[in-house]
Simulated scan of single mutants.
Amino acid sequence: MPDRDALFIGLMSGTSVDGIDAALCRFEGSQVQTLAAHNHAWPERLREQLLAVAQGERQLDLDRYGQLDVAVGQQFAAATLALLKRAGAAAAEVTAIGSHGQTIRHRPYGDTPFTLQIGDASVIAERTGIDTVADFRRADVAAGGQGAPLMPAFHAAVLGADSACQVVLNLGGIANITVLGADRVLGLDTGPANGLMDAWCQRHTGQRFDAGGAFAASGKHDDVLLSAMLADPYFSQPAPKSTGREYFHLAWLERFGVAALAPADVQATLLALTAQSVADAVHRHAPNSTRVLVCGGGVHNEVLMQALTAALPARRVQSVATIGLDPDHVEAAGFAWLAMRRLRGLPGNLPAVTGAAGPRLLGVCYAAPRPVR
């Protein structure tokens, strides 16, 4: 294996709660190489609890909060151990883990803004024997920022500036874009992506996600519903901005009277909502862009990719696989990068993206157990 100082593990579970993405990464200068990757399935009962909490459907007492925090940490540790086994690597070869945790609330607005990710990092460090960096978002929020999105800094470091301007689009539970131009880096959450589509699909088909977009393709999008959803104030809100599943969830959707429509038509309209809100954000924030590089689970939804291509006719819409990156593990690699930045005393946020008062060190370090002398 390569030199220890170059190896980091990134752990990420997004708002879709569709699994824990783990990536073993090697960093050399601005280059990142993903040596091994693993998607770790959530136990179904725990996944259901996390989804309910994130959507505001269940209030937590302190005991249950503590139990969930530890249970999530245990699963992140298990994902790490499975990744090491797959890679044939030892814990001692890894400098540190960067663990995003699981977001259960993201409220960056108001008099007392906050963001909350659970997944006890002490448990991760104890069970893996690897120093763990976690809690990446709250320092940015404390500095007046959104705490999200954080990946634009990673995209800029790995992909660099583009004189022609290009966009990196992440299609997770929420969609977000990074705009990489010759003299600027911008980023924002554009609105819902897989989160709403997955939830509606599971309710009406029993499947956790719409494989390939087949359910959406079986229906026809409703223009009246689409216009009503796009009128939500979030879409016209200026950047910096970020959102999450606690805002865009099924209760939000049901306010638009969807019960009168065929379920497949609603699914088709949700897909159209994602494509159109992304396209609107690209047109607004990157009018001269020539390429959109897509990562995240939505890259596998062929119908969604076709809709994006149609909504962005002057741009090449391509998976990041075309430039040698694994679309399923870009975010995990990004949190490995953020852990590396934290240990080297380097800021991890971009104030122009999040709105923070300035660059900040992101993450809190949790030491793995060491022999007592």
Results as ranks from 00 to 15, higher is better:
2 P>W: 09
5 D>K: 10
5 D>E: 09
7 L>M: 13
9 I>L: 07
9 I>E: 00
11 L>E: 02
13 S>T: 01
15 T>A: 07
15 T>S: 04
16 S>I: 09
19 G>F: 05
25 C>I: 12
26 R>C: 14
30 S>N: 15
36 A>E: 13
36 A>T: 10
40 H>V: 07
42 W>K: 01
50 L>A: 05
51 L>F: 08
52 A>P: 11
52 A>S: 15
53 V>D: 12
53 V>M: 09
55 Q>C: 12
64 R>V: 08
67 Q>M: 13
68 L>R: 00
69 D>N: 15
72 V>S: 00
75 Q>H: 15
79 A>E: 03
80 T>S: 12
84 L>Q: 03
88 G>P: 04
88 G>A: 10
91 A>L: 05
93 E>M: 13
95 T>D: 06
98 G>R: 02
98 G>M: 05
103 T>V: 07
104 I>Y: 01
104 I>M: 04
105 R>M: 11
105 R>E: 14
109 Y>N: 12
110 G>K: 07
110 G>F: 07
122 S>P: 08
129 G>I: 08
133 V>C: 09
138 R>W: 13
140 D>H: 06
145 G>N: 11
146 Q>C: 12
147 G>I: 04
153 A>W: 00
157 A>C: 05
167 V>S: 04
168 V>W: 01
173 G>H: 01
173 G>L: 00
176 N>M: 13
177 I>H: 00
178 T>G: 03
178 T>L: 03
181 G>T: 10
184 R>H: 14
185 V>T: 13
185 V>A: 11
187 G>R: 07
189 D>I: 10
192 P>K: 03
194 N>S: 15
195 G>D: 04
196 L>K: 01
198 D>Q: 08
199 A>M: 10
205 T>F: 10
207 Q>D: 14
213 G>N: 03
222 D>S: 11
224 V>N: 12
225 L>Y: 02
227 S>G: 15
227 S>F: 14
228 A>N: 14
230 L>I: 06
232 D>H: 12
235 F>I: 13
242 S>Q: 01
243 T>Q: 06
245 R>A: 08
246 E>L: 09
246 E>M: 11
248 F>Y: 10
252 W>Q: 08
252 W>P: 04
253 L>V: 06
254 E>I: 14
256 F>L: 09
262 A>W: 01
267 Q>K: 07
271 L>Y: 06
272 A>R: 05
274 T>D: 03
276 Q>K: 08
279 A>I: 03
281 A>Y: 01
281 A>K: 00
283 H>Q: 14
283 H>Y: 07
298 G>W: 02
304 L>C: 11
306 Q>H: 13
310 A>E: 12
312 L>D: 02
315 R>Q: 15
315 R>V: 11
318 Q>D: 05
331 E>I: 14
332 A>E: 03
335 F>W: 05
337 W>I: 05
338 L>K: 01
341 R>E: 02
343 L>N: 10
347 P>W: 04
348 G>I: 06
350 L>M: 06
351 P>K: 06
354 T>N: 11
357 A>R: 14
361 L>Q: 02
362 L>N: 10
362 L>P: 00
369 P>W: 11
373 R>L: 04
